[in-house]
Amino acid sequence: MSWRLILAIVLLALGASVWGGIQMGNWLVENGPLRAPNMVAIEEAAQLMPTLDADGKPYVTPAPQPLVNGRLGVPEEPEGFEWKIVAKTADQYNPPIALASTRLSARALSDLRQQGATSPSGLQGLARIGPSGGSRSAGQQAIQPVDVTIPPPPPAAPVPNVGGNSNWIPQFQRELAACSQKGFFERPSCSWDARNKYCGPNNAWGQVEGCPSR
């Protein structure tokens, strides 16, 4: 048997299998079980019906956004809680409002000024403080004055004990100023030469500015 005959047989077998598969599929489609008409209608109606949220409005999927953990997703809604505002009368819990909103006669105003302590429906806090507000009761004492001790004046600067002659100090200061104008390496030797010239003979070490203690 030649290879040409074998190749022809294989091609014929493949063609027959393909044709047989197509025919079998068409037969299964035509003879398969059908869905009930009522189920088809219910599925089509469900597909056309929009999804509603808790408020009865069409539900729209929220867009993803960055979360706290760095990922991208839809954040969880916070848990709701019930709250309500308790109705309270301002005059009952805030006596100054009741006093300010009430018209008082001249006699009532005079009684308020003269009484020592205010009633629960009168003024409170800083409103009780004043020269004629009656903030001090009969049993209270006046504020005692506070004694303030004045500190003594600072001691006078000590006078340098350089003997009877101090005319050399201005000349010494001028030479020190002249030494400060010299170069970096010449300045220390010049300053110490001036100190040894004036501070030593006049016994001014540690007593005159520019003469350090030794």
Rank of each mutant, 00 (worst) to 15 (best):
M1P: 09
W3L: 10
R4V: 11
I6S: 04
L11Q: 05
L14G: 12
S17Q: 09
N26E: 13
L28A: 13
V29M: 08
N31L: 09
N31T: 15
G32W: 04
A36V: 04
A36F: 06
N38S: 11
I42K: 14
I42W: 06
A45E: 15
P50H: 04
K57N: 15
V60C: 01
P62I: 02
E77L: 12
E77A: 14
E79Q: 12
G80H: 02
W83G: 14
W83S: 15
Q92K: 12
Y93N: 02
Y93W: 10
N94D: 12
P95S: 14
P95H: 09
L99Y: 05
A100K: 13
A100S: 13
T102E: 06
R103V: 10
L104P: 00
S105F: 08
A106I: 10
R107H: 06
A108C: 02
L109C: 11
L109I: 10
L112V: 03
Q114R: 14
A117R: 08
A117C: 11
S119G: 15
P120Y: 06
L123P: 03
A127V: 00
S132G: 09
S135N: 15
S135P: 03
V146P: 00
D147K: 04
T149S: 07
T149N: 05
A156H: 02
A157C: 02
G163A: 02
N165I: 01
S166V: 07
W168G: 00
W168F: 13
P170T: 03
F172I: 03
Q173I: 00
Q173R: 07
R174L: 06
L176F: 01
A177G: 09
C179R: 02
Q181C: 00
Q181M: 07
G183N: 10
F185A: 15
F185H: 01
E186L: 08
P188Y: 11
C190P: 03
S191I: 07
N196F: 04
N202M: 11
A204C: 13
G206S: 10
V208N: 08
G210H: 10
G210F: 08
R214T: 08
